[in-house]
Write a protein that binds this DNA or RNA. Structure first.
Lengths: 108, 108
DNA sequence: TTGGGTACTACGCAAAGCATAATAGCACGG
DNA sequence: CCGTGCTATTATGCTTTGCGTAGTACCCAA
């Protein structure tokens, strides 16, 4: 991986996860599959699971364990009220950032 | 500072610096002033100088020292050929990322 | 019984942002 | 003559993140 791409993603994957969950409850493995469909992200399990734990510890996500039809039980995550607020903030900031970068790239 | 914002910037500031230098030669202090004008970034000296050193070590920037009218000598940075290539790559990736995020945020 | 898909956890490294502080030269007012 | 403030850079150390690697565990089909 190209190094600078890895760095560009820092924090961004958190935004992605929260946005996926904005559409409704989901569990780790499914979220990974979902994000893998976006080639620009090309994310892996070892990246997503720690983020989910962290967001849960921060009180942005809540968990519900459900037995799986195959494999260990699924941990369904969904947004808490704080989580919904956070994702709104993040999307707003991302929007601003996009505009600022656009100007910068076009030499202002 | 809000933590998640700090993380979102990782790698991005590098892109910003290179884009500022795409307009022509500049030195650390001036670049900081330039980026401070963009409130979304609100960058500080201790962030910018290490990035400049790093980019130079990677061969993306070249340096020219010039005595300053006030204070220590200025270190003027400019893009090398590799630097110009890199900034083009980065801008392209940023564009893709913006599109992918846009879809994600709008619920696909 | 062996391979493959599902599903999660744990360990540890490298890199980035940033706070803090130190250094240093010039100009201006009192 | 001395302090304050602007210019301009360097050094140190902390925290967090992404991610490679590895391990655990369950089910089903060939």
């Amino acid at each position: 991986m190209d190094g600078w791409i890895t760095q560009l993603r820092k924090g961004l994957l958190e935004v992605c996860l929260l946005n996926v969950l904005r559409r409704g409850e989901s569990y780790g493995y499914e979220i990974v599959q979902e994000l893998k469909r976006i080639e620009e992200l090309a994310v892996s399990e070892s990246t997503v699971y720690p983020i989910l734990s962290r967001l849960r510890n921060e009180g942005l996500l809540k968990v519900r364990d459900v037995p799986s039809p195959a494999g260990p039980p699924r941990r369904y995550f969904s947004l808490t009220v704080a989580g919904k607020l956070r994702v709104a903030e993040m999307n707003a900031y991302w929007e601003l950032l996009g505009q600022a970068m656009g100007k910068l790239i076009q030499g202002k």
